[in-house]
Amino acid sequence: MTLKKYVVTRLITMFAVLMITLLITIALVGSNMDSILKQGVAFEVRDGITKNPKISEGFASTDEFETFVQIQIQQKIKSLGLDQPWYSPQRIGLTMYKILFLDFGHATFLTSDSGSSDVKEIILEKLPRTILLFTTATIIISVIGIFLGAVSGSKVGSIIDRITSSFAIISSSFPVWWIGMLMIFLFSFVYHIFPARATPLIPSSDPNYIGSLLYHMTLPLITIVIIGFGSWAYLVRNFIVGIMQEDFIIAKKIIGIDKKKIIYTHALKNAAPPIVTILALSLSGSLGGAIITEAVFDWPGMGRLYFEAITVMDLPVIIGATYILTVFFLISIFVADLLYGYFDPRVRTG
């Protein structure tokens, strides 16, 4: 299989997954969504009519007026195609088409900081903050992890290796959000260093907003890094240990090449493909994990948006956020696959 064909097959799979995810999401929330849309239309029509007093003056009784309003609502519902059930092929097709091009409609309850209820605008406002927090965290984690992993992989059984390995094993079984609660307890209740809520109090138009946001970001960032770097170091260590037993490394050792040089140039280079793949995957994985972490720290990103949307059952936001999370997840899986296929030609031949 050529690289081109490999890329095309992966792309098709990814697109299929995206469509299936969308279909399942719509199927799960469809019936609720339907009633929300109809309520929205009824409200809109009624609002339009009451704003124009001339229309109501023309009716003799309130009953007559009421029937007129109902007829108007039914007409509007029909013209929008809402009279058909949500599972009719046209409706599903239309909904999926809209979502595919990021038209998620209007949120029922939630608004963006600037007051817009357009789901797309809300998401576009929250997404950069999530990326800021979690990408920074992932980069720090991977740098510490690769370095520690290389050191402990080269000195198997040493104190550094033992500490790293046991820290990795222990930290992996603590939920990040629980450590988050402990950190809030420690740093904002006991020591008053960082605020308990990570949402800056000043409005986003203020010039100091960025600084305030970064200050509020510190506590969640530290927490994510503390919990994350151990398992990274452990993974890198295991790759290095495996590679150090390969024949070509042993040969290099016998020739008498400096051990440090072997590790940092030859061994690490050979461990690169899986490391890069894991980097790509953990970037997207962190977006999913963001839902709980952001809920704990009250970080104003996608995760908290998702959490709030669940709490008030704001379906358009849930659908939109799920879609965006899925897209990011798929892109990173795709990139990981490509990188792997590029680094390791054996994958392509299956």
């Binding site: 799979t13 990814m14 299929a16 997954v17 299936i20 995810t21 399942i24 999401t25 799960l28 929330v29 609720n32 999913g288 994990g289 839902i291 709980i292 998702y306 669940i310 059952m313 849930i318 956020a321 799920t322 999370l325 899925t326 997840f329 798929l330 899986i333």
Partner: peptide, 23 residues
């Protein structure tokens, strides 16, 4: 394996959340 790929690429947590709300 294609079917496996599809399940693998589903974002687990958002899905679990939606499933537990709706079902």
């Amino acid at each position: 394996m294609r079917f496996n790929d599809v399940i693998y690429a589903l974002p687990a947590l958002p899905f679990l959340i939606i499933l537990s709300i709706t079902i």
